[in-house]
Design a protein around this nucleic acid. Sequence first.
DNA 1: TTGCTTGCAAATGATTTGCACTGCT
DNA 2: AGCAGTGCAAATCATTTGCAAGCAA
Lengths: 151, 151
Amino acid sequence: MSDDDRGGLHRLVAARLDEVGQLYTGNRRRLIELLADAGPSTLPELLVAGDGLAQSSAYRNLTVLAEVGVVRRLVHGGDHARWELAEELTGHHHHLVCDLCGTVVDVELPMEVESLMDRAFDAAAAAAGFDVDHHNVDILGRCADCRVTGN
Amino acid sequence: MSDDDRGGLHRLVAARLDEVGQLYTGNRRRLIELLADAGPSTLPELLVAGDGLAQSSAYRNLTVLAEVGVVRRLVHGGDHARWELAEELTGHHHHLVCDLCGTVVDVELPMEVESLMDRAFDAAAAAAGFDVDHHNVDILGRCADCRVTGN
DNA sequence: TTGCTTGCAAATGATTTGCACTGCT
DNA sequence: AGCAGTGCAAATCATTTGCAAGCAA
């Protein structure tokens, strides 16, 4: 994310919090910065990078940020959930997930692929009586690091 | 799943267990039957349907069945994980997930869509240094029941 | 001074494990 | 006999919550 977008990011988060009477405190700003810098992160990762941030505050703040729609909780197989900035802030994307170390990296797919998937998903869901709201794609495999270390 | 396949299913599971010196016991057979009948199910659902099956045995048996590759553990947002028969037994498929009640239903996508996705995913992953092993697609929305009840 | 935040400690709840017992081979 | 499977109760561990003190409008 460019430094240019960073200001807009903070302004949007502050506005969203304000709408529900919540403040954009230092802890919350730090979490947003960390997620903007590091992408999908676990709570322990955020605590290590967060310099003294209390665990309970981190969980509470991430929950609040998710409630106002600026953060999203991801759940894959590992012990800890992962948190990332919401798509409204990052754009629509999917995830590369390493089967070995659990790392999650964002990927964007070509627009034609997204629209073909949308059409296919709508059709498949309609046949089962579902109304589609959105879709998540996880691409699982081995990340560059784990390929090298032969994990 | 047809009754015809059911016999083959049990034979395959028994063989897989046998390979690692484990038995195809009544509890394990019951779990396989329940998953074949009900699709992706939570542990509480399996216990209710399982008539006296102990919780710890259910967890332990599902773990063993997953280790020999006949069962898969799914994790979406809810309180409980869900378990389903592995794709080797059911064929490749994806999931419709109800945002409101958490129900998960299997869907199959047209072959052309799968192959287009495979190609797109390989290309996107390669750009990030990932080797793709497989992919999961979750289609999220509102199931037929929740549409009716206006949950 | 009213209400949102914070950190600590305690509680919660899904899942796992220790153990003694039963049952297959 | 010898090892796998079972159920109960206790332990684990990510996450949540109660509470008292700090801080902003």
